[in-house]
């Protein structure tokens, strides 16, 4: 049961390793970037899981009047800070991916290939 309860974190580890492996093992520069992106995305999932409180709702102030009697009990909120932090991380990830892909375009123009081994033999 513990393993199942930590399902999110298992997903994070699997995604992280898939991304990291692709990043290291693949020779194609575009695939490397995709690997990097999966690696970064797994961190986003990790942070979002940190912030989620079981049964918690979005952190919005709810008027007592709309709920009547129910509002007497306190409302459980999820922690919004990790979620907000990840908005920044998503922007950073997009910027990195965009810069990386534009580099690949220029590498393709300069070397005529996006395979790492062919580029290496061309640079010698």
């Amino acid at each position: 049961m513990i393993a199942l309860g930590l399902f999110n974190y298992w997903a994070v580890i699997v995604l992280m390793m898939v991304g990291f492996y692709t990043l290291i093992a693949r020779g194609n520069l575009v695939k490397k970037l995709i690997g990097l992106n999966i690696f970064q995305t797994s961190v986003i999932l990790m942070y979002v899981s940190f912030g989620k409180v079981e049964g918690g709702t979005a952190p919005i102030l709810i008027e007592a009047a709309e709920h009547g009697a129910e509002a007497a009990e306190p409302i459980l909120y999820s922690n919004p800070i990790p979620h907000v932090l990840m908005l920044t991380a998503i922007v950073v990830g997009v910027a990195t991916l965009a810069l990386g892909l534009s580099l690949v375009v220029r590498i393709k123009e300069a070397f005529g290939t996006v395979e790492e081994d062919e580029i290496q033999s061309a640079s010698l």
């Binding site: 990291f20 990097l36 690696f39 990195t96 990386g100 580099l103 690949v104 590498i107 300069a110 640079s123």
Partner: peptide, 16 residues
Amino acid sequence: RRALTSTFQYLIMGSV
């Protein structure tokens, strides 16, 4: 032109 490949390498390692 090797500036491009070295940047790419830096980008990958730096982002990791």
